[in-house]
Design a protein around this nucleic acid. Structure first.
Lengths: 338, 338
DNA sequence: GTGAAAGCGCTAACAA
DNA sequence: TTGTTAGCGCTTTCAC
């Protein structure tokens, strides 16, 4: 037999479908006796409900959609886990998608969520400019919160960290440890985080009198591979910088791999810093000095924003930036004097 | 205004809703002229369709649900990425959930998917025994493929690797490198993979004359933390084993961290092997000898199985086991003679 | 090739 | 407290 429907339960328990609906969902007044009878019938039949039909009728699905650029970046998996944890508390289910850093794919995922009438969308957009089209296509009725990255020209809430402050922390620390010059390795994609980190780096390098040459800004991707490429490039140069500042831990991992393979002493010959504080940052040799993102806080705030009732017509959107924290480990121990 | 519906498109283009449906979905005969007109009207209105209504009516959603025990285990994220890649080719969307290794949560996720009428479910069950109830609650009409792990007492397809053969590869290699005794560190959860790996370990340890004492089987969780705990325990013992065989890379990472912190030379004093070949296995110091799981193949086969038409009443289920591959790296270089 | 009409399973008004 | 009724937006017969 097919999946039992509300009508089957109604027939068995001798009440109307409306009463079954009320008894099972807990909305509306139903006598205890009837409720018991309905529940018994439902469990006997193995009735589980049809959330498609429910969603069609009631206009909400109990599902929150989330889109991240890369599920293999441990920063995002940590974020996703925190979000799931928060959603569990409000009884919602998370459906996760990966945009693979591709704007077109991201747009398709967004549309999937929209067509599925999810109750809200959390997105870490993959592009600071091109993602704007897809994001603005989402009807105002669906709450959207951007996480980590923010796309200029969109009108949604945002939760992230203060990237500029993070760079201040990193460069203050580097200067204290004696850095006189620095290289910055990050992502070329024009998203807000990458840009803010770059801007912050340049600003505070100047403030703390750390020299940055024209070739010392290396922009590629947030990936281990990009780190390895840059590592090879740096090895080919006559001298290593005092410190290599990375826009993501995974980039630092790649550079460390390249340097270790080449027999470079870390941090003896060059200091290196990451960004995110993913789990492996403390496992790698040398353990990585990095900027910790408060994923639990980010997730909690994002979920809170999603469920905020749109109070007025005059919808104002909030931008919440948390304070990052510098985690100091081996990779920025002092350089050995030359 | 609200989201446009098929009726709005019909009104603007001057045809019936049935024709709009046919024109837009491509099913059924529609004249080119009408089709063009409908498409124009649809795009003018920004019509996107309502997949809830579509799913309710047509009984399929274009969505495949996947449940993994832990999204922070890089093995699973690699698997998820491969699955997404395969699903993209058949035009389906993946919705991912995390069971956090919790049977009750896994059951809830499964029910979410069932109620959402997904076209199929891919699941890597978190428990070899307790997961059986939830899995058997899924109606026969929803195709289910178990990945990696298999739950005894269920009737679904399965795709994984030959865990016993994998252990043969590991122990053959260890024996060649001079191991006379070994410790096995893995997960205590009674899932098929954990059990098959343990059984294979014991079997081939005997075959290759590698001594395994009663305290040399350490079963906990598939996590870095568990590896660190075991690392501390092993350090407290009078002598280190020749080789530590781990049931997952993440466990090996934890042991390596504990040993490195204690100043133990790896692999000089003890060899270590992992399982899965996650990306970080080649980055860690020492780089990790491990068993590579062919995630692309696993994913492709699983997706193929999902879309296989249930041919007959006599539904037979397939179990496909791929051959694992041993990746030899630094962590099993020969021991320094004592 | 196109339209009319009947639902998919459920919930929300409105009656009773 | 409960039942009746009317759809949600779409696809899919069945006519024409």
């Amino acid at each position: 037999m097919q999946q039992p429907t509300i009508a089957d339960v109604a027939k068995i328990s001798g009440v109307s479908t409306a009463t079954v609906s009320r008894a099972l969902s807990g909305t509306g007044r139903v006598s205890d006796k009837t409720r018991k009878r309905v529940q018994k019938a439902a469990s006997e039949l193995g009735y589980t409900g049809n959330s498609i039909a429910r969603a069609l009728r009631s206009k909400h699905s109990g599902i929150v959609g989330m889109i991240v650029p890369s599920i293999s970046n441990p920063f995002f998996t940590a974020l996703v886990e925190s979000v799931e944890h928060e959603l569990l508390r409000v009884g919602k289910t998370l459906f996760l998608c990966d945009s693979q850093g591709d704007v077109a794919l991201e747009a398709r995922r967004l549309q999937s969520f929209q067509e599925s009438h999810v109750d809200g969308i959390l997105v870490s957009p993959c592009h600071g400019i091109d993602s704007v089209t897809a994001l603005n296509l989402i009807p105002k009725s669906t709450p959207v919160v951007q996480l980590d990255q923010f796309v200029v020209g969109t009108a949604t809430d945002w939760v992230g960290i203060d990237d500029e402050q993070a760079m201040d922390l990193v460069l203050t620390h580097a200067a204290e440890r004696g850095a006189k010059n620095a290289v910055f390795v990050s992502s070329a994609s024009t998203n807000s985080s990458a840009q803010a980190r770059l801007a912050g780096f340049l600003k505070f390098a100047e403030v703390y009198d750390i020299r940055v040459g024209p070739d010392d800004i290396r922009l590629g991707r947030f990936s281990v591979d990009w780190g390895e490429e840059v590592g090879a490039l740096l090895l080919a140069q006559p001298a290593l910088p005092d410190v290599i500042v990375c826009g993501a831990d995974v980039i630092a991992f790649g550079i460390i791999r390249a340097f270790t393979a080449a027999g470079i002493s870390l941090p003896g010959q060059v200091m290196i810093t990451g960004f995110d504080d993913v789990a492996f940052a403390s496992i790698i040799t040398p353990s990585l000095t990095t900027v910790r993102q408060p994923t639990r806080l980010l997730a909690a705030e994002a979920v809170r924003m999603l469920s905020r009732r749109p109070s007025e017509e005059t919808i104002t959107h909030a931008k919440v930036a948390f304070t990052p924290e510098l985690i100091i480990r081996e990779s920025t121990a002092r350089l050995t004097p030359r």
